[in-house]
Design a protein around this nucleic acid. Structure first.
Length: 466
RNA sequence: GUCCCUAUCGUCUAGAGGCCUAGGACAAUACCCUUUCACGGUAUGAACCGGGGUUCGAAUCCCCGUGGGGACGCCA
């Protein structure tokens, strides 16, 4: 059996972190088994679905590198098929028309709630042998209800949560088509999963309660019931449920915040799934390891600090040329021109071990391209008369010495010794003079990358100002 | 209210009856490295929700509580 999985978001907003993880696991499972990963857009909620949201979901998946093999399929384009199946079920007697109005339903629900009962349809229009149905009211467009079994249990072996059983008495005859003939969610999902030959349904555990209904419909249609794996939800950093109002952000926001997709992917993979003590792994490795057995059944809290750590890790590994591209994008947004400055990839390489994200990297690199203005505090603290004297002496040597870090280090050390100063007493003022900050990577490496010409210009400016 | 799911360090997790004196990672703390700040390295502290069973033996199995989450729509 070839594995076929699907990711089926409804396009009512961006792709958030929970959806991304669901997509990742579905994708990984298909890849792991040489199967097919399908993207299906569940857009039957016409009022809330938008093309922008569809695009946002596709963009998010693309950024993460989760490519689908089939689709995207749109449910709105499959209406004829759903109606066809409904007609078949009506004919077969596994579904029936119900003329109960919304008002009557509301009244029924209120009555049941008053009696502290679980609200459910009472089956008044359900045809049974020997039962007389109420007279059909004029002018009412009936809904179609599924004829759910009255007794027995629906059970499945959830690949994450283990065996789950529901008594059919807990389920009522749910609506599969509205008064206007449009099919409802639980029905569309069933027909789609069936038609698309989905073998493994990997989705959020908010769907656990839908599963017995879907299984019953599948059975009524004579369809094979797929395997189900219900993933628990991801909680926010504060332990609270993620919602549009609270904490849920688009995966694209992570791009904007300077995260690398491989870091987000690695983090997400490890959130709710484990492979022994392994923490850091590439997607290739993940796909080889991924299975449904090691998915955690309970909800997981998002931890930005761990994501940050992973991001810093992948930043250290990243190709400087790639980092240069990312940083350039960010500097351009701040109208920082790179022309006339040192080679960006080299500067990025100097700083990639020290940054947590690409925005920090961009900030760190910034003074290499825009002559910095140290604050008065920094100036008075570090550019003391003694320091300026030393910088003056150093400037003369820098005009002529060799220009590699290996050569520059000794020059600075020697100057410090000649001035009767310790290394930091020269190196720090030099940092301030060149970059406007008392901290930087190894000063000799900074000099090498900045280049003799720019170093001398900046030193002269500092010396004449001081 | 009813039904369903769930419960190991602050957080993510390992753990499938003896390998558990409960392991790893992030975070925290300390120290080391160092030319500053980082990075890095080393070390330390930190958990089996409670109560009953089952068993020679339970973090692991069962039951009952409690906490957390979800569902009960002509939403998806």
């Amino acid at each position: 059996m070839t594995v076929r999985t699907r990711f089926a978001p409804s396009p009512t907003g961006f792709l958030h972190i929970g959806g991304a993880r669901t997509a990742l696991f579905s994708w990984a499972y298909a890849r792991r088994h040489g199967g097919t990963f399908i993207l299906r857009i569940e857009d039957t909620d016409v009022a809330r679905s938008t093309p922008e949201a569809v695009q946002a979901i596709i963009d998010g998946m693309q950024w993460l590198g989760l490519a689908h093999d089939e689709g995207p399929f749109y449910q709105m384009q499959r209406m004829e098929r759903y109606k066809e199946v409904i007609a078949q079920m009506l004919a077969a007697g596994t579904a029936y028309h119900c003329y109960t109005s919304k008002d009557e339903l509301d009244a029924l629900r209120a009555e049941q709630e008053a009696k502290k009962e679980k609200p459910r349809y009472d089956g008044r229009w359900r045809p049974e042998a020997g039962k007389t149905l109420p007279p059909v009211p004029a002018g009412v467009a009936p809904v179609v209800r599924f004829k759910n079994p009255l007794d027995g249990v629906v059970a499945w072996d959830d690949q994450v949560k283990g065996r789950i059983e529901f008594a059919n008495t807990e389920l009522d005859d749910f609506i599969i088509a509205r008064g206007d003939g449009t099919p409802t969610y639980n029905f569309c999902v069933v027909v789609d999963d069936w038609d698309m030959g989905i073998t493994h349904v990997i989705r959020g555990d908010d769907h656990v309660n839908n599963t017995p209904r879907q299984i019953n419909v599948l059975s009524a249609l004579g369809a094979t019931v797929p395997q189900y794996a219900h993933l628990s939800m991801i909680l926010g950093d504060d332990g609270q449920k993620l919602s549009k109002r609270h904490g849920a952000v688009s995966v694209m926001q992570y791009d904007e915040d300077g995260y690398l997709p491989e870091a987000v992917l690695n983090y997400l993979a490890r959130l709710g799934w484990s492979h022994g003590d392994d923490e850091v792994f590439a997607m290739e490795q993940f796909v080889q390891w991924f299975d449904l057995d090691h998915i955690t059944a309970s909800a997981a809290q998002f931890n930005t600090e761990k994501l940050n750590w992973l991001n810093a890790h992948y930043l250290k590994l990243a190709d400087p040329a790639r980092l240069a591209g990312e940083v350039e994008r960010r500097l351009a947004a701040q109208n920082v021109a790179l022309a006339g400055g040192p080679e960006l990839a080299k500067v990025a390489a100097l700083y990639r071990d020290r940054a947590t994200n690409l925005n920090e990297l961009a900030d760190a690199v910034h003074p290499f391209y825009v002559v910095p203005m140290p604050s008065d505090d920094v100036r008075t603290q570090h550019l003391t008369p003694a320091a300026l004297t030393a910088l003056g002496a150093l400037r003369e040597k820098l005009a002529t010495c060799g220009w590699t870090a290996a050569e520059l280090g000794p020059v600075i050390k020697q100057t410090a010794a000649e001035q009767g100063l310790k290394m930091p007493q020269v190196a720090i003022p030099l940092r301030v003079a060149l970059l406007g900050l008392p901290q930087s990577p190894a000063i000799d490496a900074v000099l090498e990358v900045l280049g003799r010409e720019r170093v001398l210009v900046r030193l002269d400016a500092t010396l004449s100002a001081g």
